[in-house]
Structures are given as structure tokens and as C-alpha cells.
Simulated scan of single mutants.
Amino acid sequence: MTRRSCPCGLPQPYEACCGRYHSGAAAAPTAEALMRSRYCAFVKGDAGYLLRTWHPRTRPGTLELDPGMRWTGLEILGTGGGSAFHSAGTVEFRASYRGGSLHERSSFERADGAWVYVDGEFPA
């Protein structure tokens, strides 16, 4: 049986990669790992995880995901901070979907020791 790699683009199977963050078995250790797991949550349609990993200061009350959206790939373009030694970080990425792509520079902070998404900007 061939195991597929995680939708986030890393070679591990989903369960050993982002799946462990989605289930709550582990917390993302870096801003990049959280960003990858959030992309994977969009792929899987896991709005609950997206809301749980969104900073309370900027989190929307609800999140409606488009069930017709088909995400097709993730490319990390750059990172700043976001390691175990930082309290904030950024991840710039391109997320491809059927028919186009989204280019974002996301900001992350630690809240109660865990990485959370704060907001993003869309570079020209």
C-alpha cells in the first residue's frame, strides 16, 4: 500500500504530519509548521482547526469554507522568525488552487505558548 504525502507538501503521510496538529495530538512547533497545517486544513475543509489556530484578537466569529474550492499545492517563498526562539514570525507563501493561486505574507504570534495566525497581506 502506497501512502500519499501530506497535502502541505512535506513527504510524510498526513497522519504523521499535519494530521497530528489537526487532531490535537501535537502543537505546531514553528510558524511555518502552523501555516502548513492551516493550508492543509483548508484542503481538508477543517474550519474548526482554522478557528482554533487564529489569534483571538483577529479571529472571525464564524468561517464558511467553499466546498467547491480545490487546493492543488503549497510553495513556501520565505520565512522570518517563527522558530522556538521567537514570539512572532512571518511566512510568505503561494497556495495554488484549480484556476489560480493566492500569494500571502502571513503574520503569526504565540498565544498561551502556541503559534496562532494573526493576519495576512497580499504582496503585489
Rank of each mutant, 00 (worst) to 15 (best):
3 R>F: 10
5 S>P: 15
12 Q>I: 02
12 Q>W: 03
22 H>V: 02
26 A>P: 01
26 A>C: 13
27 A>F: 04
28 A>D: 02
29 P>V: 13
31 A>I: 05
38 R>G: 02
39 Y>E: 01
40 C>S: 15
43 V>P: 00
44 K>L: 12
47 A>P: 08
51 L>A: 08
52 R>F: 05
53 T>H: 06
54 W>H: 13
55 H>T: 07
55 H>F: 09
55 H>Q: 08
56 P>W: 07
58 T>P: 02
63 L>K: 14
64 E>F: 04
72 T>Q: 10
72 T>W: 11
76 I>H: 03
76 I>E: 01
77 L>Y: 15
83 S>H: 10
84 A>Q: 08
85 F>I: 05
88 A>Q: 12
91 V>E: 00
93 F>Q: 00
93 F>D: 00
95 A>I: 15
96 S>L: 02
98 R>L: 14
102 L>C: 12
102 L>F: 11
103 H>I: 12
104 E>P: 01
104 E>K: 02
108 F>V: 05
108 F>A: 02
108 F>G: 00
109 E>N: 07
112 D>G: 15
112 D>S: 14
112 D>L: 06
113 G>N: 11
113 G>I: 07
114 A>T: 14
116 V>L: 03
116 V>M: 08
117 Y>T: 01
120 G>E: 03
121 E>K: 11
123 P>N: 12
